[in-house]
């Protein structure tokens, strides 16, 4: 039994990893061809942008150096071959190693998104608990807050928070500074809309959980309402939302584009925006692959956790 169990786990993992490789390859292919449909000559991106007045020689040199003069199929095979050995290539606009550039900015974005995810979680849990609690008025307020929070665009929220906490109150810096203070506003901006959303999700399962037999039996055993909530209901309600974390992480990368721009934080989101504008194909591909990889890994990890938590899934 343990042997076959281990083999089954290994097999599951192998299938998932193969799936992950497929996903990454598809994304690289998709981006490769999509960006070739975008108007604009990549050689110009290399020569200082589309307004460049580079000479014919300079253009020819660049086209040759980057292989842009070869047939598209050949360029594609070359690019995929390089990706296979983990070479993300050289950024067109920044003329630097893409892997190095990403490594430089990955941690800032990771820190921002992980903190935002955690904050959103806490806020959502608070809101959802509040929303399922007795008083009608309280419930109405909580659900109004959820809806408003989920319907606020990041860029507007960022400006309001800066106006309130930096300009008016002078409590927090409006731009990234070393240390935790500079992270507060970006994290809150990113977390609030997500919290509104997660709260709506959690409330559904929390309401279910409170009516479930185990909650009833806990009450029957004489546990306090708070105890029931904390020990059983919240834990139960959190499960489906935990499996959302992979998705939430992905959506936060999109949000990071806006938040990093407004708060002038270095990071992958801002790089992505610039890379698309510059038609910097290697950099766009690199960032897309890295965020896809993060997404895939998080998904595999949460699925694995699910398998551990729910033995029924192990057979499938």
């Amino acid at each position: 039994m343990p042997v076959s169990g281990a083999r089954r786990v290994l097999r599951w993992l192998a299938v998932r990893l193969a799936g992950a490789v497929f996903v990454l390859w598809s994304i690289a292919t998709l981006i490769f061809f999509a960006l070739r449909l975008v108007p604009g000559d990549p050689a110009l991106a290399i020569l200082g942008g589309p307004g460049s007045q580079a000479s014919e020689e300079a253009l020819a040199l660049v086209r040759q150096e980057y292989g842009l003069d070869r047939p598209v199929s050949e360029q594609y095979l070359l690019a995929m071959g390089r990706l296979l050995v983990g070479d993300l290539g050289t950024s067109y606009s920044l003329r630097q190693d893409v892997l190095g550039l990403i490594a430089e900015q990955f941690w800032g974005t990771l820190l921002l998104t992980v903190l935002a995810l955690a904050t959103a979680w806490l806020l959502a849990l608070g809101l959802a608990t509040w929303a399922t609690r007795g008083s009608r008025a309280g419930r109405a307020v909580a659900s109004a807050l959820e809806i408003v929070a989920a319907a606020v665009p990041h860029f507007w929220l960022a400006s309001v928070l800066i106006l309130l906490f930096s300009t008016t109150l002078g409590m927090l810096p409006p731009v990234s500074v070393p240390g935790p203070l500079g992270l507060v506003l970006p994290v809150v901006t990113l977390a609030l809309p997500l919290a509104g959303f997660l709260a709506q999700v959690m409330r559904e399962s929390l309401a279910d959980a409170l009516e479930s037999p185990f909650a009833l039996s806990a009450r029957a055993r004489g546990e306090s309402e708070t105890g029931v909530r904390l020990r059983h209901a919240v834990r139960h309600a959190a499960l489906p939302a935990i499996s959302l974390s992979g998705w939430a992480f992905g959506s936060l990368i999109s949000g990071a584009v806006v938040v990093e721009t407004v708060f002038a934080r270095p990071g992958l989101g801002r790089s992505l925006l610039k890379a698309v504008t510059d038609r910097d194909i290697p950099l766009v591909t690199g960032i897309a692959l890295v965020s896809a990889l993060a997404f895939v890994l998080v998904t595999i990890a949460t699925d694995a956790l699910d398998r551990v938590a729910d033995p029924r899934l192990r057979g499938s």
Partner: peptide
């Protein structure tokens, strides 16, 4: 897998590239 590919791509990137095209 198709869905995973779409899911793993940051939504904004998809939108930006589409608008650029």
């Amino acid at each position: 897998r198709i869905n995973e590919v779409l899911f793993a791509l940051p939504g904004l990137l998809l939108a930006l590239v589409f608008i650029a095209i």
